[in-house]
Amino acid sequence: MIECIVQNAIDAKDAENLGVSRLELVSAIQLGGLTPAYETIQQVLDSVRLPVQIMIRPHDAGFIYTLEDKEIMKKDIYLLCERGHHRIVVGALTEKKTIDTVFLDDLFGEFPKLDVTFHRAFDEVRDLTEAYQTLVAYQKNIKRILTSGGTNGCVEGADSLHRLVQLQHTWQGPSILPGSGLNVNNIQDLHGAIQANEYHFGSGVRKGQSFEERVDKDIIKRIQHILLR
């Protein structure tokens, strides 16, 4: 399973045509990814058949959200659900750097059909094992956790990612989705160390490893070859 970050319909169609398995739609990738404009969301959903996880993140000022922030996020999710789309990427923490379960309870109570990727807010928790155990209780909705193992990237976090994958199998919880810093040059060694079932790629599948360039067919094919053998 290869997930790819996209920012518009052209990106999305490119990725689908090149054999990517799932898309994460964001805006403002230079800020780590924010909620896309609704018009962009509509264009992407009308352009592809692949599963599309849509980022719900109102700003880049951390993952501890005010009540006003949460209402904005819920309004964005409501618009998606009205359209019949329930796949989102979201995450929230408390001031103690634990999972914001009050927000999750509220969110899934109001939107019970959500299919969620809990994003890299997970990498800022005080304890990865504690946080994973918390999210196991929400696996009806939280299907996967995007993480670099509590570090800046998957290279540094490989050992932690492997331990999280082991917890995934032991507790039958949400899938671990390694992401950050993955590319065609390191995925073989990292997959050997981590042994996840799915991986999240950003600039690493683009020409020149730049979001200003399009998804590269040869890179995608090489990554597929590595992961499938």
Rank of each mutant, 00 (worst) to 15 (best):
V26R: 05
T151L: 11
F122E: 10
G181Y: 00
I2D: 04
I5E: 12
F63V: 00
D115I: 09
V89A: 12
D69N: 07
I54V: 14
H162W: 06
V89T: 14
R144N: 06
D100M: 05
E68K: 12
I41C: 09
D106H: 05
Q166I: 03
N197L: 06
D123S: 03
Q224S: 03
D189T: 09
T129S: 05
R83F: 15
L164D: 01
D159Q: 13
E16P: 14
L128I: 08
L164T: 13
R22K: 13
Y65I: 01
G192L: 05
E156C: 01
K97S: 02
F118L: 03
L25W: 07
A28S: 15
P51G: 07
K113V: 06
P174L: 02
H200M: 11
A92M: 05
Q30Y: 09
R144F: 01
D60W: 03
L50G: 01
N183Q: 04
Q53Y: 14
A158V: 00
I77H: 06
D69M: 01
S160E: 09
C81F: 09
Q166E: 05
I223K: 06
I142R: 02
F111G: 13
Y78E: 15
I176V: 14
I223N: 10
D216S: 03
D11A: 10
P112F: 06
S148R: 00
Q172R: 14
G19E: 01
F201K: 07
D115A: 02
S27V: 08
V52E: 09
K74E: 14
Q166V: 03
G109H: 13
A12G: 12
D76W: 06
K75H: 09
F63S: 03
V89L: 07
S47E: 15
G19C: 00
P174R: 13
G149C: 11
V184N: 08
V136Q: 02
E213M: 15
F63H: 00
I176Q: 01
D218L: 08
P51H: 07
I54S: 11
V116H: 02
E198W: 07
F111A: 15
T101N: 00
F63G: 03
D123G: 01
H85G: 03
Y65K: 10
L107R: 04
D218E: 10
D105L: 04
L79K: 15
H169Q: 09
K207Q: 13
V89I: 13
I223A: 10
R126N: 07
H85S: 07
I77Y: 03
N141D: 13
V125M: 01
C81Y: 09
L80C: 10
L182N: 00
A137L: 14
Q195L: 14
L45A: 08
A137T: 10
G19W: 04
E82M: 14
H191A: 15
N141I: 14
G179C: 02
L227P: 13
